[in-house]
Structure formats: structure tokens, C-alpha cells
């Protein structure tokens, strides 16, 4: 029987595995009293499960159900007026959860904060569009790429992929070169399913060479007319160089076509 390979992360291709390699981790520092971020931690209080500083930036781990309340506090009490990025990370294979993060910016005090929460597969998250207008497109992208539903979003539909697309491409279970639906998408859409046989499957081999296909390939030194049949072998066609290129200008006897020296 063939060896079973897990399908929960089909995008992962390891070319080399070092048994003793340990993934590097950024150190997490505690928030010191009276430091740059102390007021933010104080305002959030017990809503944060964990808060630490990573590469000079405050990270708040919260419950996914409290995301709206936490972001409201950060916006109204701590001056975080911009939500510059919001997305998700697929940890389904590892932990069975998605990690959602919000990246906020306080422009007057030059402070940033990352609010991180985790949700299980199939759970929905509350929309933060009433707080930040930029969350509108970001949440649509999360829905498009991961299939995470967002409650109370004004217009939750796909933003990057076509409306009739199947699957959510940033999931680790989604193959990099697409599933069957993706590989026939343009053919099905434009010509219909019955044209799959006419057009044929996608060729994803970048280095494919068909020696006997003289319409698309030619062999240097063995050139034949377009579309000629070479199944019986082809005649050698020695490469002839132009004589003007090979003129030996140091010799008097060299054949010369111009007057320059």
C-alpha cells in the first residue's frame, strides 16, 4: 500500500529537513511599569489574557468574543485611530484554530499594538467595521481567503477571487497550483465543461520539451521545417557563421568587406 501523507498542509514542501533545527522565536518581554505601553495595558485590564512586548511592539492576546469591546477601548481611550491591517493565520493543522490579528496605530503618540485572538474552525468573528472603515475590505479578504464568517459585516462577499470561486486559497489544505475546479475555471466559464477535452489540461511543467513536436520545439543544429514529421530522425544542419564576423583583421590576407582598420 502507498504511504499515507497527511492532507492538512498540502502547501508544505520540505526539500531538506534538519533534525536538530529549532525554529527561532522572538523574545517576549514584559510590559514594565511606567513604560511606553503601560497606559494601554491598564486600559485593557483583564480583557487581555496575555500581554507582552515583541520587537518593541505591544501584543495583546484576547478572547475572540471580546474583539469589538477591546478595539473600542483602544480606539476611544488609548487613541488608536487607525486599523492598518487585519488578517488571519491558518493554524488548523497544528492547533485546530485560526489566529486573527488586528494591527492598530496611534498616530499622535507613535504607538502600535497588535491584538491577537484565536477562533476554532467554523466559528464566526464580530465585525469591527463600525469602529474602523478599513476593516470592511480586510474582513472581506479574510472571508475570501480563509472562509471565516464575519458577523454584522455590511457586505460580506468575496473581494479577490471571483464570486463563483470554490475554496479558500490561503488555507493550508488548498493546493498551491489549485484544485480541479481552479484548473478548469476559465475553460468552464468561457466555453463550458464540454470543451475540457478540446483544450486539454494545464501544462505546469516549466521545462517540458517534446522532441518530436516540430511546431513548438526545434533542436539547434537539426532544424527542420515547421510541423515536419521527424519520427524517422532528422538531417543534421550544421551551423554556418557569417564570414564578415570571422574576418581576421590582424592578417593582411583577411577577407575584408569594409575599409575600416
Amino acid at each position: 500500500m502507498r504511504k499515507y501523507t497527511p492532507k492538512d498542509n498540502v502547501q508544505k514542501h520540505s526539500y531538506y529537513t534538519d533534525r536538530f533545527w529549532v525554529a527561532p522565536r522572538v523574545p517576549r518581554e514584559a510590559v514594565a511599569e511606567g513604560s511606553h505601553f503601560a497606559s494601554v495595558v491598564e486600559a485593557i485590564g483583564t480583557q487581555a489574557k496575555e500581554c507582552y512586548i515583541e520587537v518593541g511592539q505591544l501584543v495583546l492576546q484576547i478572547e475572540s468574543t471580546e474583539n469589538f469591546a477591546v478595539l473600542q477601548t483602544l480606539k476611544e481611550q488609548c487613541g488608536y485611530t487607525q486599523c492598518s491591517e487585519q488578517s488571519a493565520v491558518d493554524y488548523l493543522a497544528q492547533d485546530g484554530e485560526f489566529e486573527l490579528f488586528y494591527q492598530l496605530l496611534n498616530i499622535t503618540e507613535a504607538k502600535r499594538v497588535r491584538v491577537v485572538c484565536r477562533i476554532k474552525e467554523g466559528e464566526a468573528i464580530e465585525s469591527v467595521v463600525p469602529l474602523f472603515k478599513s476593516a470592511n475590505f480586510a474582513e472581506r479578504e479574510i472571508f475570501d481567503m480563509f472562509g471565516i464568517k464575519v458577523n454584522n459585516h455590511p457586505f460580506l462577499k468575496r473581494i479577490i477571487m471571483p464570486d463563483d470561486w470554490e475554496g479558500h486559497p490561503l488555507l493550508k489544505t488548498y493546493p498551491m497550483i489549485g484544485d480541479e475546479f481552479a484548473s478548469w475555471y476559465e475553460v468552464d466559464k468561457i466555453f463550458g465543461k464540454e470543451y475540457r477535452d478540446v483544450i486539454g489540461p494545464e501544462n505546469r511543467d516549466q521545462s517540458r520539451i517534446d522532441r518530436y513536436d516540430t511546431k513548438r520545439f526545434s533542436r539547434v543544429g537539426y532544424e527542420v521545417p515547421f510541423g515536419a514529421d521527424i519520427s524517422e530522425g532528422e538531417k543534421e544542419n550544421p551551423i554556418a557563421y557569417s564570414e564578415t564576423v570571422l574576418v581576421d583583421y590582424t592578417q593582411e590576407s583577411g577577407k575584408q568587406l569594409d575599409e575600416r582598420r
Partner: peptide
């Protein structure tokens, strides 16, 4: 070589 790109416009 991804899911979102037409692999040669001669397909359509």
C-alpha cells in the same frame, strides 16, 4: 505557477 493564473492565454 499558481491557482489564480491562466497557464498560457492560448487556453482561451
Amino acid at each position: 505557477n499558481t491557482y489564480a493564473t491562466v497557464q498560457g492565454v492560448d487556453r482561451i
